[in-house]
């Protein structure tokens, strides 16, 4: 059982999920990630799910949890690289992932995090969630 690598880009952390998630792996990821956020003083966390063809309610909840934990540690979570088919399935399941920010790819996710860190008050003003 391998663990999911966490890469550091500037003051952001990049997690790329490429294997099937299960309970223990998710817990391990949450552990690792929270520790790394504190250790590296990361301001943003990007979770890349472009390799996932199936995102179910379990992964949806895990993403929400990670976003909530990061928020407590003052880091912004952005889910990047979701496939169109996955997005449609999630919406049909009623999982809008409302607590998580999203971006099309890693590039845009990085820009989004930068943008939010640079103007925190403007971001809240022009977004309705």
């Amino acid at each position: 059982m391998g663990e999911i690598p966490i890469l550091r880009i500037g003051d952001c952390l990049l997690v790329s999920i490429q294997v099937d998630m299960h309970d223990r792996l998710a817990l391990a990821l949450q552990d690792d990630l929270t520790e790394r956020i504190v250790a590296d003083r990361a301001r943003g966390v990007m979770i890349d799910i472009s390799a996932l063809e199936i995102v179910d309610s379990f992964i949806g909840r895990m993403l929400n949890n990670i976003a909530a934990m990061s928020r407590v540690l003052d880091a912004i979570t952005v889910v990047v690289g979701m496939r169109p088919a996955v997005a449609i399935t999630l919406v049909e399941l009623g999982l809008g992932l409302t607590g998580v920010r999203t971006a099309l790819n890693v590039d845009k996710g990085l820009a989004l995090i930068r943008n939010i860190i640079d103007n925190p008050e403007r971001d809240d003003a022009n977004r309705i969630r």
């Binding site: 889910v79 979701m82 997005a87 809008g96 999203t102 099309l104």
Partner: peptide, 13 residues
């Protein structure tokens, strides 16, 4: 709402 949420999941407002 579904269309809007799906677009949001893809990172578009």
């Amino acid at each position: 709402i579904k269309t809007i949420s799906a677009a949001r999941l893809m990172g578009a407002d």
